[in-house]
Design a protein around this nucleic acid. Structure first.
Lengths: 256, 256
DNA sequence: TAGTGGTCTAGACCACTGA
DNA sequence: CAGTGGTCTAGACCACTAG
């Protein structure tokens, strides 16, 4: 008797369904084309809608499908390659970077970030919210944490839950000051991690997705003067993005 | 009237549930501790099991929980940081790398890989299956594709679906020859991408997970003599892994 | 064998989109 | 407004693990 057993277990329906659909997408559908609705598809395959949805969810996770409430399910374009690991030690906000600053405040960062910055919990820092756009679509949301010590020239008055309106404008101008001050430091190195997460409510809004959508969380630690000068937590849409890390000595080919 | 509207929409039950559970995990549970079973938990929160499972799935996706069929749900340890972006241009299989070669064969790669290697579809290449272990647990499965042109000294006879048994042993020895030959080339650069995927059946077995489990797929292109000398497709368990990309000039801090 | 998580069903209602 | 995907229910059975 063979030892491998070669799948005595029955393949789950949703798994088989996913394979069938995946093949159909390759052969019979064009990018952007809309699929039949979930109730019809379920009936066509003779399964409950929940089972069909399990297959669709997997395909969406793999970036093959795009589903929008009230609209329908469409065939997704190939994932776009977004360059992480910016060219040769560049500060965020340096000319030519792909990010747009939305607003800024001066509050206490989450505990893990405070630890990375080597600050006691509760210490306020500059927090810049930024967005990365590609082809007119938002692909990433970022929170950039800059301790006061890294940007002594930037006033820390803005965003202190002021009395009147116009915080957005005040925050934006403050953001410019923070970035300018940051660029005066010499960037010695950076360290990155990538992990899977699910979008918080605010990030989801920013990324035009539902809360809980799968995201790739990139944490960057910027090092200057031997210390951690800033920390960025970037949240990329996992369904549409392929992160690329270019290395010197190789002109990019994988970048979409 | 406030313009922000501040969540008129009712928060979905599973989302609220996830928040409650997440807080409970932080405050009332220790790593490794087992939670009550799903039926009890659902009853305790007054929701259907499917709804509870939606919350648990999210928490598992975020690496907070670990669920095993027939056993139960336990509190997961923090994700382990695994170093990708091996120190300064090292070939796979170089002394000190964290991978173990399982077997090797000589077959045609999938179409996207063939394109990366600039080979016509169907051309056979050396395919090495490797596993990366951390703390005795498999964290990644890899398929390393090496075209014959990169390793002229390695015979391409092994794995040709030979007549008798013992392919594993023959494949393993062949793998050694392929890696040795590869190391004779001067590595000029490498390029990487990271994206979200779901585990294929074989990878899932290798990673001790169920098929479809979320994984981080790292594609590495090795460049030598101005051409793509090899391509590696590495599949990391997304629930347990945090990929770290160390950069020169910064001693690692994020690496767990 | 008892208990766990994994799969599946057939409904229902809701939130959102666009005509 | 009709039609879509998103949420939720209350069951059922199965595959797996461990005592």
């Amino acid at each position: 008797m063979g030892t491998t057993q070669l799948e005595t277990v029955p393949e789950p329906k949703y798994w088989h369904l996913k394979t069938v659909l995946s093949d159909a997408l390759d052969s019979e559908f064009a990018v952007g084309e809309i699929l039949p609705n979930e109730r019809d598809l379920a009936a066509r395959f003779g399964v409950a809608r929940a089972t069909l949805r399990q297959a669709l969810e997997q395909l969406e996770l793999e970036g093959r499908l795009q589903r929008r409430r009230g609209v329908g399910t469409t065939v997704a374009p190939p994932r776009v390659g977004v360059d992480v690991g910016r060219a040769e030690h560049a500060w965020p906000g340096a000319p030519g970077d792909a990010w747009r600053t939305d607003d800024a405040e001066h509050t206490a960062p989450p505990v893990p970030v405070a630890r990375l910055l080597d600050l006691p919990e509760g210490s306020p820092v500059h927090v810049l919210r930024r967005t990365r756009m590609t082809n007119g679509q938002p692909v990433a949301a970022e929170l950039l944490y800059v301790p006061d010590a890294s940007v002594p020239g930037a006033s820390s008055a803005a965003g202190a839950s002021g009395s009147s309106d116009g915080e957005a404008a005040a925050g934006a101008s403050d953001a410019g000051a923070v970035l300018r001050e940051l660029h005066r430091l010499e960037l010695e190195g950076q360290e990155r991690t990538v992990e899977l997460g699910s979008a918080r409510a605010d990030d989801a809004r920013q990324l035009d997705r539902l809360p809980g959508a799968p995201v790739l969380v990139v944490t960057t630690r910027y090092v200057a003067r031997g210390r951690t000068a800033a920390v960025a937590v970037s949240t990329y849409r996992a369904d549409t993005c392929r992160l690329t890390f270019a290395d010197s000595g190789a002109e990019p080919v994988l970048a979409s």
